[in-house]
């Protein structure tokens, strides 16, 4: 098979990792979207701000930005899942046919 480039172990690792990634990153995206306080420390914030309202604005854009980033990363893991799942399937099939 020409498009097989992962061994059985690597493809399994890919499947497990991407399933984990999809679940966790999607959830993190949701938590950013609902502005979870626990994730405040991880926001991209500038050092100085003039007053409270500017700070709050910055935090809110940070939350939306991060939630979008999380979902995009989750999508990337969906792609990884598809690729490694396909590889895994190929590996399994070839080992059965042997």
């Amino acid at each position: 098979m020409s498009c097989k480039f992962c061994g059985p172990k690597l493809s399994l690792v890919g499947v497990v990792l991407s399933v984990w990634g999809i679940i966790q990153l999607t959830l993190m995206g949701v938590f950013y979207a609902i502005k979870s306080v626990a994730l405040l420390e991880d926001l991209p914030l500038g050092g100085s701000h003039k007053d409270i309202s500017e700070f709050i604005g910055e935090v809110e854009t940070g939350y939306t930005q991060n939630s979008h980033n999380c979902w995009i990363a989750a999508l990337l893991y969906v792609i990884t899942l598809v690729i490694s799942g396909h590889q895994f399937w190929l590996n399994n099939r070839s080992s059965v046919s042997m």
Binding site: L25, D42, L43, P44, Q65, N66, H68, N69, C70, I72, A73, L76
Partner: peptide, 12 residues
């Protein structure tokens, strides 16, 4: 998680 734009997604 510390990026202001969508490059952050790839980094993430």
């Amino acid at each position: 998680l510390k990026d202001h734009n969508y490059v952050g997604a790839v980094k993430l």
